[in-house]
Amino acid sequence: MSALFQLEKLFVAYHGVDAVRGVSLSAPRGAIVSVIGANGAGKSTMLNAAMGILPARGQIIFDGAPIHGLSVEERFFKGIALVAEKRELFASLPVEDNLALGRFRFRREGRAAAHAALDEVYDLFPRLRERRRQLAGTLSGGERQMLAMGRALMGKPRLLMLDEPSLGLAPLIVREIFRIVVSLRERGVSILLVEQNARAALQISDYGYVLENGRVSLEGPSAALQEDARVAATYLGFGAHRGDDGDDDADGDDDAAT
């Protein structure tokens, strides 16, 4: 498996501080790669730089070509989609319009293709079909996450970057979302998953990175990381540090770009 997406020695300054300091990371085709780390470790900053929202130094390579100079939209046209931590929905538009706008790049392909794409997303998230006429701003947290993912999928991305999809959601909904993430891998979408919920992320991913203070402190196959004593202690809630970082879903994640 060759890498679809690579970061090489990425540095990102955010609010005048280097929030990401020399991160190198690789996402193979058809795999789920997770990046775990505590609040403020630089995870969201890294994703926002990868999408072009924040300026960065270092190499960003997609499908063998550097994409460093491309705008957010141009990266999206290449096949990279970001589901941002704040979901960034169109609150005053109905669910179905949000989804339709996700296909804006294919707007010349006609009605039939648009309907087929909508149906595909509705099959993946039946809840969105029920809510299709409702304004996006009135959805529950889980539905908003589903809509953000569905909207990203409407653009047929090859790499889907998910920023804290479990943030603020009930455990049952988190399980459903992660089940869908796994099903996306089966459809050939490569996934870069950034999560504080390390246990859930490592369970579904193939490979994992641990981010600490803007640096990769540990990486390896997810199964191996789950066994690692340090990861278990710090992020999975076993051992001495239980509850200090891992599942603490505080919303004040200040490494998120707004």
């Binding site: 939209e73 960034e88 609150a91 005053s92 706008l101 804006f104 707007r107």
Partner: peptide, 23 residues
């Protein structure tokens, strides 16, 4: 129209619009 909705989308959430390729 989808183009009209894209304008509304830019108005309500500029970053959200960019994330779906609406420059």
């Amino acid at each position: 129209t989808l183009t009209g909705k894209a304008l509304r989308a830019t108005a309500v959430n500029r970053l959200g619009a960019r994330l779906v390729g609406i420059a």
